[in-house]
Design a protein around this nucleic acid. Structure first.
Lengths: 120, 120
DNA sequence: AATTCATTTGGCAATATAGCCAAATCACCA
DNA sequence: TGGTGATTTGGCTATATTGCCAAATGAATT
């Protein structure tokens, strides 16, 4: 019942979790990936994601609140930029782990026989 | 309405998001951090987190399903291990970004005066 | 086999998230 | 000032997540 960590540590974890939460959605990951290639306006991202613009706007608000992206209004459109480029490094980490997991999945599904095996 | 990405790409994003989702909770982040120091049984992690053991067990199940941790039963207890150590690198990235954000927050709250300023 | 400890699972209520539509803003232009 | 395009916000429903309790499972012990 009594946690072994301080309130401060709790707050730190909460803040960190906010960033992960912000990235924990396919559309938002897609947006981040796209923004890694340069700034984009909401209309461009909307076409890319293929959802309602209001939906995309809310996704962007989540990313912005977490400090992952930055926005700048120019004329009538708003441009978003990636502000935490180090997330891209983590994508590679995840990618690698997923490949390992996939390989393992396959081996569980049909293990390579040690000496001789046959399909069943 | 029509997204500009393929179904395969969609699936890839979904899989990636699953990992982020698994990390998107303070308690689970705490667990990951702890496991970076070595394997721990559920009872240890439960004390650390300070929640019901069933709750912690479910958190661990989420991390396991995402491939972030691994488990091994030894005797009557189950030991969990970090399987994706590269997540730790990302913690640093987030930490740095959050510090930058915090500093900026403070400057927004009370900007350093350019020439002369006074409290209001 | 009964007991106990460690863990997982089922179920449920509270809360949070996602996505759409409609309405409100905001900038620009006629 | 009215109109148009870009974006955000409010509101709503559907869905997902969280966390507790209680019950089920499993291993070690008596």
């Amino acid at each position: 019942m009594t946690p072994r960590i301080s309130k401060l540590e709790r707050a730190r974890l909460e803040a960190r979790a906010k960033v992960f939460k912000a990235l924990a959605h396919p559309s938002r990951l897609l947006v981040v990936q796209e923004l890694s290639r340069g700034e984009r306006c909401v209309c461009e991202l909307t076409k890319l994601v293929g959802a309602d613009m209001s939906t995309v706007s809310k996704h962007l608000a989540v990313l912005h609140a977490a400090g992952v992206v930055d926005s700048e209004k120019r004329g009538s459109q708003v441009y978003y930029r990636l502000r935490m480029p180090c997330v891209l490094g983590f994508f590679k980490c995840v990618e690698g782990a997923m490949q390992a997991a996939a390989k393992e999945q396959m081996e569980v599904a049909s293990p390579r026989p040690r000496r001789a095996g046959r399909k069943r």
